[in-house]
């Protein structure tokens, strides 16, 4: 029986070798902290926490640029955080004089949200930039922090109306 089943023992040995190779490989490549808190590498938390902070947060921005914050309050962009358009600027907040943010190209930045797309809700302001402005920078006509171009109504009336809401 043993002699006639020898090939099966050899087969089992091949499987056992494969399994052993897998176990050794697994021990070698799976990080030690994997599974410490959940289905991820536990040490990743400390690594991420040790990274330098990139975003300053709109409260920090507004503590110096209160004029811009006031402008924003009058328009729909009040809900858009500063760094959503200007990029992460914690370094600038730390050292405002030596780290100066680059001036944005509004023809590119505005289109990120406002380029026409049939998937966007109809109420969301959107334009086909090629037809709308032909590549001209948006801030030629719009004031980015308060983008709606007011026609007719006076600024005061508008402010009062918004204040009542």
């Amino acid at each position: 029986m043993f002699k006639d089943g020898e090939h099966l023992i050899r087969l089992a040995a091949v499987f056992a070798l494969g399994l052993a190779a897998f176990v050794i490989l697994r021990a070698a490549v799976v990080p030690r902290s994997f599974g410490q808190y959940g289905h991820y590498r536990g040490a990743a938390i400390a690594e991420i926490a040790s990274r330098p902070i990139a975003l300053a947060g709109h409260v920090t921005c507004e503590s110096c640029h209160s004029d811009i914050a006031d402008q924003k309050k009058l328009g729909k962009h009040v809900v858009v955080a500063c760094e959503a358009c200007h990029g992460a600027l914690a370094a600038h907040a730390e050292d405002p004089t030596s780290v100066q943010p680059k001036k944005l190209d509004t023809a590119v930045v505005c289109a990120r949200c406002h380029e026409a797309n049939s998937a966007k809700p109809k109420w969301f302001p959107q334009v086909a930039t090629a037809d709308h402005s032909g590549g001209i920078a948006c801030d030629t006509c719009h004031q980015p922090h308060r983008p709606k171009i007011e026609t007719g109504k006076s600024e005061t009336a508008k402010t009062e109306a918004e204040g009542k809401k």
Partner: peptide, 19 residues
Amino acid sequence: LTLGSSNVSERSLRIDERL
């Protein structure tokens, strides 16, 4: 592919068949 075993006796083949 033989895994070093060249046993093709009737009995071994019967084991293969059953397995």
